[in-house]
Design a protein around this nucleic acid. Structure first.
Length: 319
DNA sequence: GAGACGTGGAA
DNA sequence: TTTCCAAGTCT
């Protein structure tokens, strides 16, 4: 591998690619950190509106530290991996207590919800520190450049990394992986470093990284209940995602009514088939609460509950 | 170290 | 329609 050529061509390519990403326009470590947390296992197009809404509401880390958890979760609702939001607020309070955003790798790594990848990304992008950020994109790009699935990705990425601008390099490799060096069908014709790529030379780029075995999808059928009384609707605290509210499922003493709709909802390795059904109760289960139907926008509602309420609204418009 | 954790877009 | 999996972290 001609490392210098790879470094030069790839950073030059990155300087011209995707200049519109909102987090490329900031040098605020807090904003960069927010973007990196949101981008964990989440596509750029999904993150952009959340990122902008989040920073508008919480422009400074102090604002996030002082916010109510329910509001943070509301702003996060729909993004997934909600422990990220809770950890972020925990970390925001750590930061405020420490008197400012941490400025070295170890201190950044110590924040709640920040692992090796995010610490390296923030340290390099916000502070120019020479830490290679290793994510799924970097693993794929490095394995392909080396043409070898057993290559030491961390060591190779560190060797390749620009010492002059580690943040630009890290983002460049990730961006290349995201838009050119795609997992299934890499766009080698448009790749700035295909001439330096060993996998491309050997024609094995589609086989790298080797496929991982997938756990079986479990299918589950459930009912979500719409129990209304005087403009209010019964919700139960989410058992899965604490801080969120759900429509109740079947429980002892409930009387089921007509079916209002159905939808699918996938959660990790489970594929749920939900039917939405009217229901009535004599006594309210202890954990449940009545919520004003006009104020549901103000509380953290699970995505499944939102989908269910959507078919509810559709049916009330066209009964 | 395997498994859990969310969601939605692309193939 | 189903399958894959994305700027990972935590337990």
């Amino acid at each position: 591998m001609d490392q210098a050529a790879i470094r030069r061509k790839l950073t030059r390519w990155y300087d011209r690619a995707r200049r519109d990403l909102p987090w490329r326009r900031t040098s605020d470590p807090y904003a960069i950190w927010v973007s990196e947390i949101m981008l964990q296992q989440t596509r750029v197009v999904a993150v952009i509106p959340y990122y902008e809404r989040f920073l508008k509401r919480f422009p400074r880390v102090e604002d996030l530290a002082q916010a109510a958890e329910a509001e943070v979760l509301s702003l996060w609702s729909g993004l997934g991996y909600y422990s990220r939001a809770r950890n972020m607020q925990k970390a925001a309070r750590q930061i405020v207590e420490a008197g400012g955003f941490p400025r070295d790798y170890e201190s950044i790594r110590a924040l709640a919800g920040v692992g090796d990848y995010t610490a390296a990304a923030v340290a390099s992008i916000a502070f120019g520190l020479p830490h290679a950020a290793i994510d799924g994109n970097v693993r794929r790009v490095v394995m392909r450049l080396a043409g070898d699935p057993s290559v030491d990705v961390g060591a190779t990425a560190t060797q390749l990394m620009s010492r002059r601008d580690p943040g630009r390099w890290n983002q460049g490799v990730m961006e290349l992986g995201a838009v050119v060096c795609l997992p299934r069908e890499p766009l080698c014709a448009g790749c700035p470093v295909s001439g330096e790529c060993e996998a491309h030379r050997l024609g094995i780029q589609r086989n790298l990284p080797p496929p991982k075995k997938k756990p079986a999808i479990v299918r589950k059928e459930r009912s979500l209940l719409v129990i209304r009384r005087k403009g209010r609707i019964l919700l139960t605290p989410s058992a899965r995602v604490s801080g969120f509210w759900e429509l109740p499922e079947v429980f002892p003493g409930v009387r089921l009514g007509t079916k209002l709709g159905a939808f699918r909802h996938a959660i990790t390795n489970s594929q749920y088939y939900f039917e939405v059904r009217e229901a009535r109760i004599a006594t309210r289960p202890r954990e449940c609460r009545w919520w004003d139907e006009n104020k549901l926008g103000e509380i953290p509602l699970s995505t499944a509950a939102k989908k269910a309420l959507r078919c509810l609204n559709a049916s009330s418009i066209a009964p």
